[in-house]
Amino acid sequence: MTTDRLRQQVLVLYLSDSALDSYVVGWARYDGTGHTSPTTGDSDEPPYDTGVAALLDGWRLFQAAQLIPPYPGHEYDVSFLKHEFFFERIVDTRALPA
């Protein structure tokens, strides 16, 4: 494969806890191939049930959120989704439909 045909796709999964086999509670996709809109979150259903399922489908994990304990007294505060995992896959654009 020549590198001028390779493009990155990024998948961000927010899991219910820090374990990669826990359930997906939020997600975002970013497609660098140009064959879909940059963000393709067009479904109410997550693309995978767990982070492990994404790995089994060929996505590569490249970043997981740092685990930071809550400040004392704030254990039950609602805030951002903290169990964030970034996945990528490299796609040969010649293999995509025109």
Rank of each mutant, 00 (worst) to 15 (best):
M1R: 05
T2L: 13
T2H: 15
T2M: 09
R5F: 12
L6Q: 08
R7F: 06
L11H: 09
V12T: 14
L13G: 02
L13H: 01
S16E: 11
L20S: 10
L20W: 01
L20K: 08
L20M: 14
D21T: 15
D21N: 08
S22A: 09
V24L: 03
V24T: 04
V25Y: 00
G26L: 09
W27F: 11
Y30H: 13
Y30L: 09
D31L: 02
D31R: 00
T33G: 04
T33A: 04
G34A: 06
G34N: 02
T36S: 01
P38Y: 13
T39E: 13
T39M: 11
T39P: 07
T40E: 01
G41H: 07
G41N: 01
G41A: 08
D42T: 12
S43D: 12
P47N: 02
Y48E: 03
D49C: 10
T50I: 11
T50K: 03
G51D: 01
V52A: 06
A53K: 10
A53T: 00
A54L: 08
A54I: 09
L55H: 00
D57A: 09
D57F: 13
G58F: 10
W59Y: 12
W59M: 01
R60K: 11
R60H: 10
L61R: 09
Q63F: 07
Q63P: 00
Q63E: 00
A64V: 08
A65D: 03
Q66H: 15
I68P: 08
P69E: 06
P70N: 07
P70H: 02
Y71M: 06
Y71G: 01
P72Q: 03
H74V: 05
H74M: 07
E75C: 10
Y76A: 12
D77R: 10
D77Q: 15
F80H: 14
F80Y: 10
L81M: 05
L81R: 05
K82A: 05
E84Y: 09
F85S: 12
F87S: 03
F87K: 02
I90L: 14
I90E: 08
I90N: 08
V91C: 09
V91E: 15
V91S: 12
V91D: 11
D92V: 00
T93L: 11
R94P: 07
A95N: 07
A95G: 14
P97I: 01
A98I: 08
